[in-house]
Design a binder for these strands. Structure first.
Lengths: 341, 341
DNA sequence: TACATAATTGAAAGCGCTTTGGATGCCACT
DNA sequence: AGTGGCATCCAAAGCGCTTTCAATTATGTA
């Protein structure tokens, strides 16, 4: 069933039927009713490809999913997607996901944009001096970035959390508890959030005249396995750190296992603060020793970005171009006074 | 830059350029070279919407993502998507993801199909007597189901793992260890895999004249929190089970916490076997007591389904319509002889 | 030399929709 | 009666591509 058939069935022109469907005012209410009724009976749905071709819009947001054989999938991606989806479903938008090798992201993004089947782009996993940024700017298509790109002029539309502030605050708390030996379990080095979190730790320490030793920083994929390895490494250091900052509850999972295996007690021998993206899978309050965290919901960020993107496409703006969300510092049992030597 | 402009630039007709690009044989090799060269220089990309409109195909697989405010995102979804993506990227396919309220899946799937912007459909989270099946059959669009639908005639294309066999084998192992009191921590009751796994346990037990008490079955979302709750419940039972079958390593995570909190030792007081979807996030061999598991890679399933779907669209078939993958039973330290009373 | 055959290219129709630029009829008002 | 305004509706063009059908030229054969 297509527009032509439907209009013939109704004895109307395609024009009128189209207008009736799209809510244009110049069609008689009785006629509109008749059309809507016919749509219900026939189950007619407009062909999206044709709509897109005719209008240049088709209610879709494009995003690139980094993937490759051997490339580990990331829980955070799924959670974020859920947020995007939650908002998109309210507006009858959908996503076009282009899987791409992580080495090919710039090109993949461009292909996606030029292919003409998305109205807007979403970009995540920002890195320092991210090469996608200049490309996006040249594209004349709406986009929103999740995160920022350290080292690039912040003149692009983004939504980010205050990573530096979060880790600054977390570090300060531990300092107040009297800790002096710190370690940071971070995400991959080139990622923007990792850079900022590290800066947050470093600047809080600097205020007390402390430094973060190279030995006490790990950069790794955020899996529990990597957490375990990193923590094992920290625990073997001659000057064992007593305060751990951790970029993800997933990493914390492994880290805590290492702590337990070493016979140490979390919150007493070792204090740990993790960043909590509010993954439903892994609640910090349910850890055997509940985790002190810096919290910001990844899913909420997804919802908000979808709002901005969809709003822009529908010209429902204006939206602020840059948003920086504060995180919450939630104190639970995994942090405590530094152990007396 | 569109086809018309490109062809004018080259002094050729749109026909010839189109043919050159799509690999038709009736174009002079020299001409083809010239066209390809121009494409490189101009960065021309065909408009996918127009292509789809003209051909009815556009290299895309549609899937419905269940989502709603309050609906928990599922790690398994992301992992599966990674598998689909890994294969799709090799064929320049992409996904169209339609987010939909879980109550509205049938309609959402139909909308997606009729919208005319996907070539094939993928469906997961199968339930018993799944209402999407009759709809899919009526659609005349290729599709592959992940899982099966208990109670429906198995005459649809699917890829499933042998859930019943997996849990049958796992149960048998525990029986051989002398366990007699079993409990099952399962996924949501209506899901097909949950039904089959339960059947596997029940039939293995039946062979020894044992039964699975209602008290010893939990159905819940597969999060660590639910795992904790379920295990706490089991441990309070007057006849405490000593053998636990668990539908996910995520559930196991919480379950094990409950075991530890109760001061019991995994692999001695309590034996546990979990199903392992090979989530990179959570490796059973890294648990503090490594987990005995039934294993089947979700991601590999994604790759295979993408192969079948893409192959069908590209007429590269034939593919078997039904595939049932065996799982592996991998014995680690979380299972041991039943404790002597 | 004449004619069938193959190789290469193009004109134009069509995919299903939106939208521009009229038509048409009806009414109120002068 | 004549005019303008309004409410409705429609024909046709156009979005950017593919594909059918036909034309043109090059090649080979009798």
């Amino acid at each position: 069933m297509n527009l032509k058939q439907l209009s013939e069935l109704l004895g109307l022109s395609q024009t009128t039927v189209s207008r009736a469907l799209n809510g244009y005012p110049e069609v008689n209410e009785a006629t509109r009713e008749r059309v809507l009724q016919a749509v219900k009976e026939t189950g007619y749905r407009p062909n999206k490809a044709a709509q897109r071709l005719a209008t240049g819009k088709a209610g879709s947001i494009g995003l690139v999913m980094p993937t490759a054989p051997g490339h580990q999938s990331d829980v955070h991606f799924g959670e974020f997607l859920a947020g995007l989806g939650e908002e998109a479903v309210r507006h009858d938008f959908h996503f076009v996901i282009m899987p791409a090798d992580p080495d090919d992201e710039v090109a993949a993004l461009r292909r996606l944009a030029i292919s003409g089947n998305v109205d807007a782009l979403f970009v995540a996993y920002m890195r320092g001096h991210d090469p996608r940024l200049p490309m996006l700017k040249s594209l004349s298509m709406p986009y929103v970035v999740h995160g920022r790109s350290f080292g690039s002029e912040p003149d692009y539309p983004y939504l980010d959390i205050d990573n530096e502030g979060a880790f600054y605050d977390a570090t300060r708390l531990l300092l107040q508890f009297g800790h002096t030996r710190f370690a940071l379990m971070n995400g991959p080095m080139q990622l923007d959030f990792a850079i900022r979190r590290k800066n947050g730790v470093i600047s809080a320490l600097a205020e007390r005249g402390l430094a973060l030793e190279e030995d006490c920083i790990s950069h790794a994929l955020m899996t529990d396995e990597q957490g375990l390895l990193a923590m094992e490494h920290f625990l073997q250091l001659p000057e064992r750190p007593t305060a751990i900052l951790c970029s993800s509850t997933v990493l914390a999972l492994g880290a805590i296992r290492a702590v337990n295996q070493a016979g140490l007690r979390l919150g007493e021998d070792i204090s740990l603060i993790a960043h909590d993206d509010v993954l439903p899978l892994l609640k910090p309050e349910n850890f055997s020793v509940p985790l002190t965290t810096t919290r910001s919901s990844l899913r909420a960020a997804g919802v908000r970005i979808a709002q901005r993107l969809i709003g822009t496409v529908k010209q429902a703006g204006p939206f602020p171009d840059q948003e920086l969300w504060k995180t919450e510092l939630i104190v639970r049992a995994s942090t405590g006074p530094a152990p007396q030597v």
